[in-house]
Design a binder for these strands. Structure first.
Lengths: 209, 209
DNA sequence: TAGATTGTTAATCGATTAACAATC
DNA sequence: TAGATTGTTAATCGATTAACAATC
């Protein structure tokens, strides 16, 4: 078994993957580390170092074979392993994520949505049904889903998280601007969009002044 | 003028801010660094170190004054400075972001949306009008908007980015899974949701095996 | 060959953590 | 006082960058 990749490396690998997907579409066969680096505005030796993490041989004087590299990244990050998820919150963001078919390329399958609004229950979005939140525990157990994507409002976030805890789901991808209090065995990944925006504007300002 | 904060610090400050907002709502007056650290599952001396970056004095034996700390973070990250933005792409994600009023707390004001679909032009979402993409350059100049939030499909991403370039907008917050080729003076912040998901599932797996 | 690129090492840089005196 | 906390230093850890021999 390969050793774990650092988070930063995983992040960059996903960006390389985006580039490779575009190269394939454009029928480009080879790509070099300086080329990847310049597209992302990072250092070229960093690209080579990242690619050494996943065992992949480039060709001197030529670069890397796009198709091969793309596949190597997909294997390293296990795109192939289906990861079933539920979306909690059938609002705009929940719908957007449910409709975002691109996710399935990355192994993420959204099976259903949940909401506490009875008017939304029973509707369908992109072939995914909206269930009442009270059905979550039962369906999670029967379908063996252990990822919850939280898109409810800040006010409802903790209550929704509690339901997720009771459903014995293991991972929460948290799109709400709330810090959830959950048991240690449940892992939370905070997407924190507003915070992301602040990082973006803050670091951009700095670079320009 | 204070020196620039490292990106990692800015990121954590936004998370602290989320916690402080909840504390205020719960009428909690003081919070200690070990308390913040345990909520986020990080080191407590790191919290203190981050808070030293923004000049803020805690009280021995007590912790930090919630209201004061919250405001200090808001000042450091300039929540108060209005940052006007356009959303390019009036799809589900564009609508979700347009409806996300929480952004305005962070200084982000979405003024309008743009799309190339004539059926969407003229509609309104959360008091924000949808314009045809051809109006972008003119409106950006007149309203002095220099942030574009890109929520179009992967296929349309580069074309949309080109329009943004022509509109002389300075910053793109890119929600599409495309690596944009733009001039150096235009800065891109890749949100890369699918990549974020992979980091989340990858690092979670690692911690549990 | 000349030029471009890889793979990898060593050097640098920055971020995190541990520790503890000072404080209330 | 005893206990909890801050502010800060030093030690550790990890990530990035520079450099270059080897390769085609």
């Amino acid at each position: 078994m390969k050793r774990a990749l650092p988070d930063r490396v995983v992040n960059r690998l996903t960006l390389y993957h985006c580039i490779l997907t575009e190269c394939l579409a454009k029928q480009i066969q080879f790509i070099s580390s300086p080329k990847i680096a310049s597209l992302l505005k990072i250092d070229d030796s960093q690209v080579r170092r990242d690619l050494n993490f996943i065992e992949l041989a480039g060709k001197n004087n030529v670069g890397y074979l796009v198709a091969e590299l793309k596949q190597a990244i997909e294997e390293a990050l296990s795109f192939g392993t289906a990861k079933d998820a539920f979306i909690i919150g059938a609002g705009n963001l929940g719908f957007a994520l449910a409709k975002y078919d691109n996710f399935s390329n990355y192994g993420l399958n959204t099976l259903a949505l949940f909401d506490n609004d009875i008017l939304k229950v029973g509707t369908t979005i992109n072939n995914k049904k909206v269930f009442h939140i009270s059905k979550l525990a039962d369906l999670a157990r029967r379908l063996q889903v252990n990822i919850a994507i939280l898109t409810v409002s800040k006010e409802q976030a903790q209550a929704a998280a509690n339901v997720v805890v009771e459903a014995k789901i293991k991972y929460i991808w948290n799109f709400t601007p709330a810090i959830l209090e959950v048991p240690d065995e449940l892992q939370v990944w905070n997407e924190n969009l507003a915070g992301s925006f602040l990082r973006f504007t803050y670091s951009s300002q700095m670079r320009h002044t």
